Amino acid sequence: MATRTRPSSKRCAVIGGSGFLGRHLVERLVDRGYTVNVFDIRQAYELPGVSFHQGDLCDRQALLGALREVSVVFHCASPAPASDDRALFHRVNVDGTRTVIQACLEAGVQKLILTSSASVVFEGTDIKNGSEDLPYANKPIDYYTETKIQQEKLVLEACSKEKGFLTVAIRPHGIFGPRDPQLVPILVDTARRGKMKFIIGDGSNLVDFTYVENVVHGHILAAEHLKADSPLCGQAYHITNDEPVHFWDFMSQILEGLGYSAPRYHLPYTLVYGIALLLWLMAVLLRPLIQIKPTFTPMRVALAGTHHYYSCARAKKDLGYQPLVPLREAIVHTVESYPHLRKGA
């Protein structure tokens, strides 16, 4: 019987490599001397040293083509949370992840690094310096997060030293940076429609926002430190900028950097939450007759008005993680990358 060639430790695959985080990850891996296969539903760019494989995440045979002779797989494919497509969330985050695990095992992949989310432990109430020991949310903030919880469990439970298949989950929070298709464009669109005038609560709530390069750094550290005798096996790690910031200060810095007015008027948190809850209940009751999608859901209000920031102590200890780009510098880089979104552009 022919012996199986051991995959090179510098050969990896990025599932979801055409997306926002995925592309930044691919670029950094290439810079570090990795040979990269990208698997995605679409090809969004070309890069020397990168092979692109297009296909459906639930197609195991298509995945196997991208995982051949690969040692490390980064799984960061996920639908945009704002899409509100429950069937898509389950298909990609749960069914797709099962397929990824099966394909990794069949292809002889040694390491799987998942992009999870710190929100898997958030239930709409304050979290201050939360550790990875917090339990999964019994009442997740939305269905997207519910599927991310299922996804993370699947990946971490698949870790098997006996099979030579090691897994770890990275939990970033509030990713932002150049080419971000969500946070900055949505913020600017809201401002242009005159709907960024109000601060929910007193504005004192602290939240983690994480620059994309720091998230990438955390992923690569996890891949390079994940070994059978390491504490990483089957564990989750928070990766943030480690600089909790007032939620509305962060939003204001982005808006003002692009020439828009920052929100100034305060609305009581309990009032806005109560209105959002009432609108959500009305939407549920009227669902058989008419489809209503309230702009403000109770959980979106909670995201804007509560403390939720997380400790990176475990990542510092086990991965040697330190953010590469401080928050102030990250905001400047991000604002400069959106000249087309400036007021008057």
Rank of each mutant, 00 (worst) to 15 (best):
A2K: 13
R4N: 10
T5Y: 09
P7V: 01
R11M: 08
G17Q: 01
F20V: 03
F20W: 01
F20E: 06
G22T: 08
G22F: 06
V26R: 01
V26F: 07
R32K: 14
G33V: 11
Y34T: 02
D40K: 02
R42A: 13
R42T: 07
Q43E: 11
P48Q: 07
G49Q: 06
L57M: 10
C58G: 10
D59R: 02
R60E: 15
Q61Y: 07
A62S: 13
A66N: 00
L67V: 05
R68A: 12
V70Q: 03
A77R: 00
S78G: 10
A82N: 06
D85V: 07
D85H: 04
H90Q: 09
H90D: 09
V94W: 07
R98V: 08
T99D: 06
T99S: 12
T99F: 03
I101K: 00
I101A: 03
L105S: 13
L105K: 15
K111M: 05
A118P: 03
V120D: 02
V120G: 05
K128A: 12
K128T: 14
G130H: 06
A137S: 13
I141T: 13
K148L: 08
I149C: 11
S160M: 09
F165S: 01
T167A: 06
F176Y: 15
G177P: 00
R179K: 12
R179P: 00
P181D: 12
L183H: 09
L183D: 01
L183F: 14
V184Q: 01
D189H: 10
R192S: 13
K195W: 11
K197L: 11
I199T: 04
G201A: 11
G203Q: 09
N205R: 13
Y211N: 03
L221G: 02
A228W: 07
P231V: 10
L232N: 07
G234W: 08
G234N: 11
A236W: 05
I239K: 01
N241C: 14
N241V: 06
N241Q: 14
E243W: 09
D249C: 06
F250V: 03
F250D: 04
M251Q: 11
I254K: 00
I254S: 07
L258N: 02
S261A: 15
S261D: 15
P263M: 08
L267H: 02
P268K: 11
V272Y: 04
G274H: 04
L278S: 12
L278W: 10
L279H: 12
A283G: 09
L285R: 11
L286M: 15
Q291V: 14
K293H: 14
V301C: 03
A302R: 05
L303N: 07
G305Y: 07
C312S: 04
R314S: 04
K316I: 13
K316P: 00
K316R: 13
K317L: 11
Q322F: 13
Q322E: 12
V325L: 09
L327M: 11
I331C: 04
V332G: 01
H333K: 15
H333M: 13
V335W: 03
E336L: 14
Y338G: 05
G344L: 05
